[in-house]
Design a binder for these strands. Structure first.
Lengths: 394, 394
DNA sequence: GGAGTTTGTTGACGGAAACAACCTATGGGA
DNA sequence: TCCCATAGGTTGTTTCCGTCAACAAACTCC
């Protein structure tokens, strides 16, 4: 509405923005809490209850929320009806990987409605991935059309993604360099597409609906077969940095005498702390990955203990640096890092950061598991809806 | 600014907040740009010119801004009057150090009006520092009372400060542990006091009025006689983390074979990159510090070159980690780190971060020099005024 | 069943900004 | 010098939105 010619965003607020903001705040609360009573909404927003009434009924008209009959709540006074996320608007999550493309349909409240996975014979080019994803979206459309409306697409990419336009700068394992994935997918589907790094979206997912709920400053670190990624939430917001590349904890230097990383540096966290080394000493394979946590916790072999200690020490070093730099309240570990943490909680319990920075710190394992990327990417897809519910008409 | 808090506090916005927000936006623009014409204000805020007229005249009435006669501006059309920061409201900056306490009077627009420094014979306890600072404030009061009004106090502390209440958790060189400095000073002066780490305020100062103007993602790193501190600005906001301790870049691990740091870890940046070592090889003393930059740039002695190379390599390692983690657009180096940078720009020109993260990166020297802490702390003192100009009456 | 409590509903009220005219002020270029 | 483009001032109207107060509804406890 109020666009600005000088580049920087307009910062004034008109009456129009006020309503939009309030609608957004309410929808955001209902979405993230998966339902709140009207009286809770008045308490949380500080708005008058008649105002809440008006705003909620607008959201109901737009089919963004539904009102349920009041529940018996053992409290005196008139019971307040529950406002729950509506099921009409959905976002589509897309996650291209080396051997498959996964799609998810995600509704408000972080509900993963459907997941579809298509295996691939070879590593897809960006164009191929777009074609397959678009085809999968088209296949979903007839079913969805009956009861849902697609708001947009969020893509979780295993690589560096420029946030401004969804350009994939580098996805090493897909062999993508400077591929305009989001733009291509938008053109192929006619939907608005946002893309971001998978670990960054993992952080969003855990913060919104996982182990990081309600925590404003957290760090999510994920260990996968191809490396270590991270995502930072600061003051309740995802921290992207200048272009969206922030969070690359895997390239923290932890061992100057280590091996050279594909990034050019030596002794990065992800060259020292590696899943394949753990699989090697435990005799597991990517197929039997599920047993990794228990094998590490009850090692059958001194070499396992040794390797766990080695990797945990490096992980602790990297986390120490991150804690000193970011002062998070919570660190969430995902993938094989969760297994490492599980195996040696004592060592990771105190990473040795500055006492003040560390004293409020908790280190836990991520919660959302396999659904995490779908939920995080869905969050990205639904973001613009929540920012401006007024633009949506069910 | 005051609008979006994604935490639990009330997040709704009433009509009242709207006016407050708009006043705040305008005052913020005028403050940080040190003056804008009314037509520029309409452009930047997107508000109607009659609205701007009303808001500006309220700010004029409150003596927060003044309007100057229009300037001749090579443009056709009626010239627009300049709106400049008013000189009435001032903040007081306080900086306790081991050998002195410095006070500054800072006005809107980041103008440092006065500086007063009182030397100390010995390292002050917190109580002593509070007493001296309060005395100095009282000495300033009669003069200031004629033409100014004190809005509050901002303190720059060489240590870890809890942002919620200004408790100094640890200031190693002052030997302070858990001293409620802000609360004590507030009680002694009757003014509202905020406190923060000095490097964090340096980052704010440079971002507001120094080399970081207009840059939303930057990292400021300062090297002093007692160590290395840092401050992060992310998405235009100071990054504090859970309790305000974020930014401790000095404790990034850069050398596992290094010496033990007072923080307990080994090989921290600040144990390897040290001003005293540079002074040692150049034969300078803290008193002749001014010549450090030139001595490093034109080394008279191979040992200087060697030490510079050693330190620059460690600094580059720490910056690499920070760039990968934060993806800033700008790194500003202050103190002796600026001299190091000056001595070996080529090495620091590319710290070896991920290509995408590094490509938009610039490394420069800080600009504000001696006034930096005063300006940063003044910014802190004036913060609540700018957030809610309606509460101020000249 | 009545008292007390909490909450939704309704309509009047006031604040704030947009918008529309219309006029004035100022400076550049033809 | 005149005309035009830009910008501010003033006044009124319109629109939107949140608050407020009074009332109605629904539940608990005695």
């Amino acid at each position: 509405m109020t666009m600005d010619r000088s580049g920087s965003p307009a910062r004034g607020n008109s009456n129009d923005h006020l309503r939009r903001h309030n609608l957004s705040v309410i929808l955001d609360l209902v979405h993230h809490e998966r339902g709140m009573s009207r009286s809770q909404l008045t308490g949380r927003t500080g708005l008058n209850r008649s105002t809440i009434g008006g705003l909620v009924s607008e959201l109901v008209d737009r089919k963004l929320v539904i009102e349920e009959g009041a529940q018996s709540s053992n409290q005196v006074g008139r019971p307040s009806p529950m406002v729950r996320p509506g099921s009409v608007p959905v976002g589509i999550a897309v996650n291209p990987e080396v051997d498959a493309i996964t799609l998810g349909v995600v509704g408000l409240g972080g509900v993963l409605i459907t997941t579809v996975r298509r295996s691939l014979r070879s590593i897809p080019t960006a164009a191929e991935a777009v074609a397959v994803a678009a085809e999968m979206v088209d296949a979903l459309r007839p079913t969805l059309a009956k009861t849902h409306r697609i708001v947009g697409i969020g893509a979780a990419i295993p690589g560096l993604v420029r946030s401004s336009d969804g350009l994939v700068r580098l996805a090493p394992h897909l062999n993508w360099v400077d591929e305009p994935f989001a733009a291509l997918l938008a053109k192929a589907t006619g939907l608005s597409v946002s893309a971001a790094n998978d670990a960054r979206l993992g952080a969003r997912g855990e913060r919104a609906f996982g182990a990081g709920r309600g925590i404003d400053d957290l760090l999510y670190v994920n260990g996968g077969g191809s490396g270590i990624g991270g995502g930072i939430i600061s003051a309740g917001r995802p921290l992207g940095g200048e272009a969206g590349y922030a969070g690359e904890l895997g390239h923290t230097m932890v061992n100057p005498g280590g091996t050279r990383c594909h990034c050019g540096a030596i002794g990065c966290l992800e060259t020292e702390v590696r899943r394949d080394l753990l699989l090697g000493v435990t005799g597991l394979t990517p197929e039997t990955l599920g047993r990794l946590a228990s094998e590490l916790r009850e090692p059958q072999n001194p070499r396992v203990t040794e390797e766990v200690e080695r990797q945990v020490a490096f992980l602790a070093t990297a986390l120490r640096t991150a804690v000193n730099l970011l002062n998070p309240r919570l660190i969430l570990l995902g993938g094989f890092l969760a297994a490492l943490h599980n195996a040696d909680r004592s060592r990771l319990g105190d990473v040795g950061a500055l006492r003040a920075s560390a004293e409020g710190l908790e280190i836990r394992e991520a919660e959302l598991g396999n659904d995490l990327l779908m939920i995080g990417a869905g969050e990205l897809a639904l973001e613009c809806l929540i920012a401006d519910p007024g633009a949506f008409t069910g």
